[in-house]
Design a protein around this nucleic acid. Structure first.
Lengths: 92, 92
DNA sequence: TATACTTTTGATAAATTATTCCAAAATAAA
DNA sequence: TTTATTTTGGAATAATTTATCAAAAGTATA
């Protein structure tokens, strides 16, 4: 599966926007966006809708990608994770 | 669904153990265990196996309960959470 | 009631983790 | 080369989580 960072980089480059410009819209330092695009760190959740809009990426797609990576990185090693996730889905 | 804290309290009382005793096994202050039992805070994940053993609670059951509550509290309000969880399950 | 014991509460502290900022180095484009 | 962009790493900051402690409240029993 395509990574979050790769996706936004791809879209940013397609639009010919420099990190500098997009980072300004997000109100973060260029270095932070650079790290996000290279998966060196996670975006904060408030950035998702802005990225979606600025880069014309479907919000649902971006949000799912974001959550998937975040939760996997945080809980990926926990035993019985899948069972737990199924439980959460059932309860929703 | 029964809460994590309720479950361990139920088992602790069934065994007639004071908070003090179980807290000592967990190497935490009594007040912390009290708060965990009343769902005022989460257990740390290293406590789960100890609780399981000391209180004769099935580890799988306890772990799933723990993860379920933790993830729900952290991500419960995120849009497309269910879709994301399904994605994670699929990838596993 | 008095005593001992257990549990709860809340405030503060400590520790951990996440995030940001900055500057210099590296890379790419003009 | 020059200019702009991107990457990198470290230091600083902020935010969150977790722990500690002491006092108050509650419970049980003599």
């Amino acid at each position: 599966m395509e990574k979050f960072g790769e996706l936004i980089r791809k879209h940013r480059e397609k639009k010919g926007l420099p990190l500098r410009k997009v980072a300004a819209e997000l109100d973060v330092d260029t270095s932070i966006l650079s790290k996000i695009e290279r998966s060196e760190r996670f975006a904060t959740s408030n950035l998702i809708p802005i990225l979606s809009k600025q880069l014309d990426i479907d919000f649902k797609k971006l949000q799912i990608l974001y959550l998937t990576e975040k939760i996997k990185s945080e809980y990926g090693n926990e035993p019985y994770l899948v069972e737990s996730l199924k439980q959460i889905i059932k309860l929703k």
